[in-house]
Amino acid sequence: MKIAVFVKHVPDVAEADLEVAADGRTLKGAGLPFEMNEWDRFALEEAVLIKDEVGGDLTAFLIGDEAAEESLRRCLAVGADRAVRLWDEALSGANPFEIAAAMRGAVGDDNYDLILCGAQSSDYGYGMGGPLLAEALGINSVALVNKMKVEGSKVLVTRELEGGWGEEVEVNLPAVISIQTGINEPRYVSILGIKKARKKPIDVLDGAGVDLSSEGGKLVVESLQAPPLGEGAEFLEGSPEEVAERCLALLKEAGGVL
């Protein structure tokens, strides 16, 4: 089975103070730690598990510059057989349609049976990459999958719905499946894996040849800014003990629960 997984290298903003660049439209990325998008970690793990179960060959794809290659090496270290990175300066700040065009370009004429990607990325959270790629390839897609099993030329997936529900769907291959977190437990990278990755190829494709223009791509980022702050919380300050006493008083007064 020919399997592919798409991963993205994103800034880790969990504990960072974010600054907007002078153009007022992009993030100042310098100094931020970057890592593999959380959803993609699950997609990668799922791809490796499937490869281990049904056999075949796993290619990891990434649209990004050389610094982003770190996430591709992670793919190789945990079990991908080869990696492909496509980039062109024109892709910096690209919108989901342009990224999808680049993804389509990276796949080229290779026919993959199964393509996995994360349900969304933690930076912009569009969640469009998977379905748009499927459309460009003319194959099936299912979004937000939290359980899957390959059965011959089909795959049985569970899509996550709201409120703890799910729906089981059978999909014909080839297909693009976008993966929701929690589907598996992504593994740690091992030293042996890193060493094995050394011998695996990373093909670098020039994105300049890919036609990024599309009607869909007519999206213009007008601004990026701090969200308007509402009233926000009243902050309690002091030592943990002082704060705890304030909390206790609040719970007694307003909460009416003690």
């Binding site: 912009y124 007008e222 990026l224 800014q225």
Partner: peptide, 14 residues
């Protein structure tokens, strides 16, 4: 709302 709720972006669908 982007970057984990820390920033906001306006997009024009031209």
């Amino acid at each position: 709302v982007v970057y984990g709720g820390k920033l906001q972006s306006k997009i024009k669908l031209g």
